[in-house]
Amino acid sequence: MGAVRLAWRLQRFELTVLVGACLALTIGGALVAWQLGNAGAELATCYRTSPDSGAADWPCRAIDGWVIQLSGVGTLLTGLGTVAPFLMGVFLGAPIVAREIEHRTAPIAWSLAPSRRGWLMGRILPVAGIVALALLALGQASEAVLLATPPGEIDARHLGMHGPILAVRGLTVLAVGFAIGTILGRSLPAILLTGLVTAAVFVGIHVGRYEVMRAEAAWIDPQQGGWSYNYVHESGFRSDETGEIIGFEEAFERYPDVFAEEQGDQIPPGMTMVYRVNPPDQYPSFVVREAGVTAVLGVAAGGLSLALVRRRRPE
């Protein structure tokens, strides 16, 4: 309890602003999800009795407008929720050790405390606990908003916007902040560098994930598989007879007459247009793998901070 009180006193302003904003987003998200659920059900009922939305006196227009407004607010909230782990990690993680080194309270504490590891844990665990709880709640609220927003589907476009991965990301950035703060020993430079390193790390993770998704994507006939694919990596034509897949450029060279006609579906004879996509059932596996990689990076950064604190000279 004493550690929590000390953490609060050391980072009162930052915790109030960032955790307060996170809680506000969570409550806002929960309210929007609840209202969207109600309004969506009301609209569906109304739509069953009055399906002609083009009619001037369409009775569902007010409900439809309300659903659109709520969806807009929901999009804003989930967008902010996506950024929240990074902001919390950078602003709460980087200064924890850096500030104590900068103000020279760390060397005094190290000389008095039985172990530096214990001192470090006392500093970071309360903040990590608060961040994890706040982001877990926010992740659930964001998920509720996404599920309540028409069409109520969660797919690869929403990776990193909902669920426990928000907490995993927040804790990893926090750990990266601890490590950089310990190396630099100054708050503001540590915040800036943590921001840059975080951006580089997560851009790298994003690029890596995209390549994995691309490698695991399958060729699908959209007419049969439905149109709910949002990560279309490439498109082409598949021979109905041999199963060979060719791109648009090759198809244009092989069948110039088909593409010369302005009318028609512009699909070569004996071929089907296909898309290379990730089927929806692959999504949970991408989330788990990305969360795993992120968590490993976080643990590595946390271990590095521990080693750095233990080896740092008490200047």
Partner: peptide, 12 residues
């Protein structure tokens, strides 16, 4: 009059 709170408040 404090660096980190000033940065957060300035952003807002």
């Amino acid at each position: 009059g404090r660096v980190l709170p000033a940065i957060l408040a300035a952003a807002l």
